[in-house]
Design a protein around this nucleic acid. Structure first.
Length: 501
RNA sequence: GGUUUCCUGGCCGAGCGGUUAGGCACAGGUCUGCAAAACCUGCUACAGCGGUUCGAAUCCGCUGGAAACCUCCA
């Protein structure tokens, strides 16, 4: 099946869902604005990158060869904190900027792994692309769309708007005239010819500690330039998908587009996708007013916002229950519900995979077969409709009901055809494991832990014989003791099974 | 102040003109030694007021509430 023919994507440029057509058939170039590594990753970052991870995974599932580029912003507005550098003496006593970047980059990668996000194809660092950025500034200057002022270079927005009508403001939906009036008083305002202009090269002040030589001054690249330079370098001047958080629409993406036009004369990306914000108590998280929870706090439960800790996969599932373009309010109740839903889905998949096709006996297509096939189709149609994971999960839930009934002997084996079962096994596993990227952290021992598996089998065997003798006290004692250490025992028709809770 | 978006049942959250979204919670039931799980049944909402339409949660207008952006931010 060729899913790619039906994929529709919401494009922020047009404000509509559009049929997805890659520039080169079979290949997709995707750029996503990555994190700034001068701080610990926060949950909001995790949601955005998880959203794009699922998009990446689905594109792969559709059979595209995808080059996924996500940058690391390790150059920016780092200034000396004012401490007396002389007093610190030795160089090693001072914090090196790259030391900071390194620390938080590692932390970011660790967190991405915890959330089971795939590694991008290329993860370029801004500091590794200073020559490319300087070159881009030069190109923009050459085209007359920027001007130098006291060693800094500014992008000329009014001139750009004149040269490329209708471009500036197209992602953020802003009207230029409004912009001109709205812009507040900012630093360096006096150097700019127009308030809407923005720096593409900044001359360093004495307190700036990450600086490079350029034809204009010793300084550093403007804050929007790295993405323009790196996307162009790795994906070309025109590529398929550009993603990022909703809060980057303006000014970051607007300026990025302007820079690309300025340097190459064309629009960088055909489809612009924006992941929406993760809210806490109905508001965007922010460290300054305390309305925040770190991923680690969420896992450990050490926060007043949650009643307990939640596993990363539960959090991931929680995120996937909402559409990536909707804001998602993180609440303890919501997480609790997600935890149950996640476990149920995992149990369902485990059960489904364990049913041998020899156990079912339909020989012609039945109503149940058709219903199951419908569920599968609904799930993929959901994904094809702008990556609607909520729909896909709902379809999987519908499907689980048939399989659970079969296992409960409430549905006859003659109601399902073997080929449909096999089809379901593949589709469900593809969706859960490959597309959603959900790992089963509920599974008891897991393959890699034979010891626990063996012990548990022994314990359950002992309990089974106690039960056979109607020795309920012993049976219950085993179950209760296991419950206490977080292992749930379930007595099914085919004997007992267990899972970690 | 400007721009944009959102307001769905007890909670989370799909929905893009005619469908039971789904999950959680809750109540009753089946199964079970008892639990758990699973299954069945019930709970059926769209901020308010108008309008368009055979038909609106879905389109338009007004009112009210919230959020994001306008400043580094996923």
């Amino acid at each position: 099946m060729n899913q790619e023919q039906n994929l529709k994507i919401y494009n922020s440029l047009s404000g509509k869902k559009e049929q997805f057509t890659p520039i080169t058939p079979g290949y997709v170039g995707m750029y996503v604005c990555g994190p700034t590594v001068y701080n610990d990753v926060h949950l909001g970052n995790c949601r955005t990158f998880t959203s794009f991870d699922v998009i990446y995974r689905y594109l792969l599932h559709c059979g595209f060869k995808v080059r996924y580029v996500r940058n690391i912003t390790d150059v920016g507005h780092l200034t000396d904190d004012g401490e007396d550098r002389m007093a610190k003496g030795a160089k090693v006593a001072q914090l090196e900027p790259m030391e900071v970047a390194q620390r938080y980059t590692v932390g970011f990668h660790d967190m991405m792994r915890v959330f089971n996000n795939l590694t991008p194809s290329i993860e370029p660092r801004a500091t590794g692309h200073i020559p490319e950025q300087i070159e881009m500034v030069q190109e923009i200057l050459n085209r007359g769309l920027a001007y130098e002022q006291n060693g800094s270079v500014y992008f000329n927005v009014p001139k750009f708007a004149e040269s490329f009508p209708g471009v500036y403001g197209s992602v953020s939906g802003r009207v230029l005239d409004d912009l001109y009036q709205e812009t507040r008083t900012l630093k360096n305002q006096d150097e700019k010819a127009h308030p809407a202009d923005f720096a593409i090269w900044m001359k360093a002040r004495p307190e700036d500690i990450m600086v490079w030589k350029s034809p204009w001054s010793i300084g550093f690249p403007g804050w929007h330039l790295e993405c323009s330079a790196m996307s162009t370098k790795y994906l070309g001047s025109n590529f398929d998908i550009h993603g990022g958080g909703n809060d980057l629409k303006f000014p970051h993406h607007e300026n990025e587009i302007a820079q690309n036009h300025g340097a190459c004369g064309c629009h960088p990306a055909n489809y612009w996708l924006h992941a929406n914000m993760l809210l806490l108590n109905g508001k965007k998280m922010s460290k300054s007013d305390g309305n925040t929870i770190t991923p680690v706090q969420l896992f450990t439960g050490e926060s007043s916002f949650v009643s307990k800790g939640y596993s990363p996969m539960v959090v991931r599932f929680f995120m996937l229950q909402a559409h990536y373009r909707s804001t998602l309010d993180i609440t303890d109740e919501g997480l609790l519900a997600a935890e149950k839903g996640y476990r149920k889905l995992m149990e369902f998949n485990k059960l489904l995979q364990s049913i041998p096709s020899s156990a079912i006996t339909a020989t012609a297509e039945t109503d149940t077969d058709r219903a199951i096939l419908d569920c599968i189709q609904n799930a993929f149609e959901g994904m094809n409709d702008d990556f609607n994971t909520a729909i896909a999960i709902a379809a999987l839930n519908d499907l689980s009901s048939y399989i659970n009934k079969l296992a409960n002997q409430q549905l006859a084996p003659s109601e399902i055809s073997p080929w449909v079962l096999e089809r379901a096994k593949v589709a469900v596993n593809d969706l859960i494991a490959n597309v959603f990227g959900l790992l089963d952290d509920t599974s008891g021992g897991g393959k890699e832990d034979n010891t626990i598996e063996g012990l548990m089998n022994l314990i359950l065997e002992l309990r089974a014989s106690a039960r056979a003798n109607k020795d309920w006290p012993t049976s219950d004692k085993i179950r209760d003791a296991l419950t206490e250490i977080g292992v749930t025992v379930k007595d099914g028709k085919e004997g007992a099974s267990w899972s970690k809770s």
